[in-house]
């Protein structure tokens, strides 16, 4: 994937570029808003990571200009402001996701994967049936089966599983789950998400040989069929 990083902080930018290259992305960098806008408009960029406060052209203005010229690539906004309202203004300006500094690289990588997947399979949202190995989820009938056997889930567990299945094969972080399933944007002091995941795990993995819901150390969870 071709990723453009627009970030004025050199230390953060270099590490970000390096980390993204290490996981196999092609990376271009810009250190101010104007340069970033020119590159994003002229090059074939799959995804842009834009800092919110940039010299010459503000990050939000950059995203707005991109959207105004019809560029639809996913944009992740990085912000050193980051609170309730800033997040909303960031998304309203045309950002697809919003991450507050300081962030863990694992969090950023997980979010980039999710954004990229959303970009390439836009039709995935409309699928009524999600399937992973022998696990099946029907969004219309709200029925979940594994190996043909019906699994009883609460409404929230169903939502949680649906979210995990839409991101199957990817790493999903705790904050992504709290945002995506509950629509809350804060860091809970307690391990709320872990407890919900362990309940879901009980429901879908307990009676079967091959576990599907995996814990990714230091990052989050992943629903996948393998190893």
């Amino acid at each position: 994937m071709h990723i453009l990083i627009v970030e004025d902080d050199e230390v953060a930018r270099d590490y970000l570029a390096k980390a993204l290259r290490e996981v196999g992305h092609a990376v271009d960098v810009a250190s101010n808003g104007l340069e970033g806008l020119q590159m994003a408009s002229s090059m074939a960029i799959d995804l842009a990571i834009v800092d919110r406060m940039l010299p010459k052209l503000d990050g939000l203005a950059l995203v707005q200009s991109l959207r105004a010229t019809g560029r639809k690539m996913p944009v992740l906004i990085l912000s050193a402001l980051g609170d309730v309202d800033d997040r909303i203004t960031g998304l309203r300006a045309g950002g697809d996701d919003y991450l507050t500094k300081p962030y863990h690289m694992s969090e950023l990588l997980a979010r980039i994967d999710a954004l990229a997947r959303r970009g390439e399979s836009g039709s995935g949202e409309t699928n009524t049936r999600l399937r992973l190995a022998d696990l099946e989820l029907d969004r219309m009938t709200r029925r979940v089966t594994r190996n043909g056997k019906k699994i009883e889930l609460t409404a929230r567990e169903f939502q949680l599983l649906e979210f995990m299945m839409r991101h199957s094969g990817q790493v999903v972080t705790r904050t992504m789950l709290l945002e995506g399933v509950w629509d809350y944007h804060f860091d809970p002091q307690t391990n709320v998400i872990d407890v919900h995941i362990s309940r879901l795990r009980q429901a879908i993995d307990k009676d079967f040989d091959k576990p599907l819901l995996h814990t990714v150390r230091g990052a989050g969870y992943s629903l996948r069929e393998d190893e």
Binding site: D9, V11, A12, Y15, L16, A80, L81, G82, T100, K101, P102, Y103, H104, M105
Partner: peptide, 9 residues
């Protein structure tokens, strides 16, 4: 946040 982010990176 900026220096914290640098520290983290």
């Amino acid at each position: 946040r900026t220096p914290l982010n640098r520290l983290q990176a």
